[in-house]
Amino acid sequence: MSIPLLSTTDLTVRFGGHIAVDNVTTQFHPGELTAIVGPNGAGKTTFFNLISGQIRASSGQVVLNGQDISRLPVSARTKAGLGRAFQLTNLFPDLTVLENIRLVVQAKANKGFNLWSTAVALTDITAKAQTILAQVRLEHVAKQPVSELPHGDQRKLEVAILIALEPKVFMFDEPTAGMSLDEADTILDLIADLKARTECTVLLVEHKMDVIRTLADRIVVLHNGQLVADGPPAEVMASAIVQEAYLGLSPEDQMHG
């Protein structure tokens, strides 16, 4: 197996007496799409937060590309190559769609502390932002403020931001939550396309089993903050421990919803 791009070692976080993520040790490899599943409250989003840095780990390490990033602030982790799309839409609501992407491209180009040239004059950055908007088919709303966009388009923009970041590791937290089937398909196509086109590492928190079955190369199951299963989709879905983890949460729904 290749060298892991991202790995966690004994990653743990406690909130008071509650252990939300408990000694999780795992690796993620380039070109691999890993689905992270588990019942509500299993610690999936917290696990994501620990990796991308919104929460600092109580103990354990996150290593990206050989560099220990566990103590770095969120922005430094982004610069190191982590890109995250959030579960709840998390954009700049009063800025235009184009400006949302332009800001990402500008961050990527390290132009944020440019005090003197105007942002308008940096035409290469704007042009690149427009190309990315075209990729997600949002160019027709480029000049609209994000707050006026329908939910589905906002989710698309969320993915577009991730594409603009050009990260080494893509982290999607329930990218299709609250979307119509059509919209969800667009997003899933984008993710599948990403995976096919680039040798990137994709982490995906997802509830819908059919999505996982078609997209994932590997499934990691979290339950009560612990990693309880890890392996190829067919194997993991069949295992008793996963059935048990989902018990009480209507396994039928989880498997076919």
Partner: peptide, 22 residues
């Protein structure tokens, strides 16, 4: 109106996300 000012606007709009995009 410099790139710096645009970042400030982003911070005003959504500090959390501004940090997350780097």
């Amino acid at each position: 109106n410099a790139p710096f000012g645009r970042v400030l606007q982003a911070i005003r709009e959504n500090e959390f996300r501004a940090e997350a995009i780097g």
